[in-house]
């Protein structure tokens, strides 16, 4: 047999993620994959293709759209969906604002990140999804270190850190009451480095935002932010053209860029290896409080 098989940690992680995805399809009726347009969700889509090959991906994707996207993200998303022939649902934050379901933050530092929760939960309920794949990784954040692969959410989409089911061996418990659902994290055991290495190994296409490019940016509280239509520059902030790239892609108003000339996968991997900052460090709103993530998870954030 392929002697190299076990030799690679990436194959091991891949096998684990594929196992988890197949379990979800077997145990749940209406799974959905939460697609953000970022590299983690792109890797998940790739794994889903592998898991069910030669069949196509047996569940739809859903994008929680803050309305503050980089144009490149949307282009990439639409091309991918078309190529794979999967169904894409969009849960719109703008719509939720218009309907008065959520109230937009105001001020120059307003972020729509926190506003994703309500449209996400609304969409889960509307479409009766009973399991939603998220690209969350345990290495991203302290609060995630104890997250399960199968994360149970009550009727209100809430996560109870005190009442999590133990997860043993490969035996994932997806039992639930009607109306409850699960968030499932196939990439739990991956690190940022693993994700990049895997993208290189498998030659997975990713948006060009991840590669070094020139862009108009400004610096706010130590974070390099892209100049977009959704943000106003404050007095004292200077817009400059710099060569940057993104290590993570999310809401354009709060996703920080890094100065970089890494324009190939190999260069990105080298850069990640040498990096002195975790990728979420570039996410402006996580720094608000040490327990910010935990608070949001309890409310049903990814």
């Amino acid at each position: 047999m392929d002697a190299q098989y076990r030799a690679s940690h990436l194959k091991d992680l891949e096998a684990e993620a594929i196992y988890v995805m197949r379990e979800v399809v077997a145990q749940f009726e209406r799974p959905v994959l939460l697609f953000s347009g970022g590299k983690d969700s792109i890797v998940m889509v790739h794994l889903a293709r592998k898991a069910f090959f030669p069949a196509s991906i047996p569940f739809p994707l859903m994008h929680v759209d803050t309305g503050h996207n980089f144009a490149e993200t949307i282009e990439f998303r639409d091309a991918m969906v078309e190529k794979l022939g999967v169904k894409l649902y969009i849960a719109s934050v703008q719509e939720a604002i218009d309907k008065g379901r959520v109230v937009e933050e105001t001020g120059p530092e307003a972020s729509r990140n926190g506003l994703q929760i309500v449209p996400l939960l609304d969409a889960i309920q509307e479409h009766q999804f009973d399991a939603a794949f998220g690209g969350g990784r345990r290495d991203e954040e302290k609060a995630r270190a104890k997250e399960r692969f199968f994360s149970h959410r009550d009727r209100f989409g809430q996560w109870d850190p005190k009442n999590q089911r133990p997860e043993l061996w490969k035996l994932y418990n997806g039992h639930k009451d009607v109306g409850e659902n699960f968030r499932v994290f196939p990439l739990s055991n991956w690190t940022e480095m693993d994700v990049w290495q895997y993208i290189a190994l498998e030659d997975i296409e990713i948006p060009n935002l991840y590669f070094a490019h020139e862009r108009e940016v400004f610096v706010r509280r130590g974070t390099i932010l892209a100049l977009t239509d959704f943000m106003s520059v404050l007095p004292g902030e200077e817009v400059q053209k710099r060569t940057i790239r993104f290590r993570t892609i999310g809401d354009a108003t709060c996703t920080g860029a890094v100065l970089s000339s890494a324009s190939s996968m190999e260069e990105i991997i080298q850069e990640v290896a040498a990096a002195r900052e975790t990728e979420r460090g570039g996410r402006h709103d996580d720094q608000r409080s040490e327990a910010a993530m935990e608070d949001r998870k309890k409310q049903g954030y990814f």
Partner: peptide, 8 residues
């Protein structure tokens, strides 16, 4: 490709 030699 050094990382391809790593195991877990």
């Amino acid at each position: 490709n050094a990382y391809l030699e790593m195991d877990l």
